[in-house]
Amino acid sequence: MSAPEIRKVLLVDDEPDIRRIGQLSLERVGRWQVVLASSGAEALTLAASERPDVILLDVMMPVDDGPTTLARLRQQPSTADIPVVFMTAKVLAPEARRWRELGAAGTIPKPFDPMTLPDDIRRVLAAAEEGP
C-alpha cells in the first residue's frame, strides 16, 4: 500500500529562515502547496482550516513544543488523522521512540537538505504506512 498523494503541507517552525527555506523546498522541489505556521497554537488553527495532507512539525519551539502540539492535534477530531512528521536538531533514540508512540509518523533530522526534503517526507510516510 503506497502513501496517500500529497498536495498540501503545513510547515511549523518558530525560525522564520527555516520556514522560508522549507517553503521554497516544498514548493519548488516537491511542487506542493505550502502553509506556514510559526507556533503550535497557529498550527492547530491552520491544520483545522487548511486540512493539509501532512504536517511538518519542529520539535523545539517556545510555548507549545512539537510533542505538545502533536497531542493537541490528536485530540481535535478534524486534525486527529493528519500524519505528522517531526523535524529536530537533536535526535536521541529514546526520544524518537517516544514521539512515535505519541503518533508521529517519523522524524527528519536537522539540518535537512532542501533538495531532498520532499523525498525524505515521502519516505518517512511510506515507512509509517508499512508498519510500526
Binding site: E15, D17, I18, I21, G22, L24, S25, R28, V29, M60, A89, K90, K110, P111, F112, D113, P114, M115
Partner: peptide
C-alpha cells in the same frame, strides 16, 4: 552549543543548496 549551531547551519546550508540547484 551543538543545537544552537545546527539551527543556523540548517538555514545556511539550505539556502546554499537551493541557490546551487537553481531553485531561485
Amino acid at each position: 552549543v551543538s543545537h544552537e549551531l545546527r539551527t543556523p547551519v540548517t538555514s545556511i546550508r539550505g539556502s546554499l543548496s537551493l541557490l546551487e540547484h537553481g531553485m531561485v
